[in-house]
């Protein structure tokens, strides 16, 4: 049961665009909201209004500052320029070689053979925490109230749910993202929209040296535009009205008067 299923025909997962994520945490909140009332036990909070609130969340957003490496910058034609902030949402990557699955002593942690989603059967989870130790990414959190392991389900109760409108049959984080930085699809299908994005933008695996083969991919920030090229920056000019007809004649006449 906790042995990995081998290559799955579908590899459902997320593609996260680090170029356009604005770090608003809407995905974090909508994930918590959906998953606290959906699959499995609620995502509990401890001391939520006190001095040191904590709780279980399946999705979190870190923000990093990146100081360009001069050598790397040169390789990019100096395109990266100044230091920049990158907002970095992180949830379960539904790895092909998920290290959290084989370590589970009870068979509660498993990877679905049909679509590759990694799930926890909370009815037989003993809450030993070994799967959370085995995950190099910190994608699993023990629920302090329920004593079972919680993790991203890829909103398995939305994506196949025929009781909700078709447009909503994507993970809550994808549906709620105001900038469209999160995309959901089948990464085993080379023609899917997500696979094409990954191919075009050079999608990244997190910690490839851990050899977990993550399904989720991250699209790197695009190089900064050249600051000296102001042609794209003069957007205000577009808003200037160009009067025509009588007003145009008047405008020109007054212009000529100096």
């Amino acid at each position: 049961m906790t042995s990995l299923p081998g290559p799955t025909p579908k590899k459902l997962g997320l593609v996260i665009d680090l170029d356009i994520c604005v770090g608003c945490h809407a995905c974090v909140v909508s994930c918590k909201e959906w998953n606290t009332g959906g699959y499995g036990a609620a995502l509990s909070d401890q001391d939520p209004y006190g001095a040191a609130p904590s709780g279980s969340w399946n999705n979190r957003v870190h923000s990093f500052e990146i100081e360009p490496d001069p050598a790397a910058s040169r390789r990019q034609g100096g395109a990266y320029g100044d230091a920049r902030i990158v907002h970095f949402p992180k949830s379960c990557l539904h790895c092909e070689d998920a290290p959290c699955v084989p370590v589970c002593p009870t068979g509660a942690s498993y990877k679905r053979a049909e679509d590759g989603i990694v799930l926890v059967n909370e009815d037989i989870c003993i809450g030993c925490g070994l799967c959370a130790w085995a995950c190099p990414y910190g994608a699993r959190e023990m629920d302090a109230a329920e004593g079972v392991m919680k993790k991203c389900t890829l909103c398995v109760d939305r994506i196949y749910n025929e009781n909700i409108p078709e447009v909503d049959r994507v993970p809550a984080c994808v549906r709620s993202c105001p900038t469209n930085a999160r995309h959901f699809g089948d990464l085993a299908d080379p023609d899917s929209e997500v696979s094409r994005m990954v191919a075009e933008r050079g999608g990244i695996d997190l910690m490839p040296e851990q050899e977990t083969k993550p399904v989720n991919k991250y699209l790197p920030p695009r190089p900064r535009r050249d600051r000296d090229d102001t042609s794209m920056l003069n957007l205000a000019a577009l808003a200037d009205p160009v009067p025509t007809g009588f007003l145009g004649w008047l405008d020109n006449a007054l212009e000529r008067l100096g």
Partner: peptide, 11 residues
């Protein structure tokens, strides 16, 4: 973070 191509990463 996969961001090493740009430069040094700091939280």
């Amino acid at each position: 973070t996969g961001l090493g191509g740009i430069g040094r990463v700091r939280l």
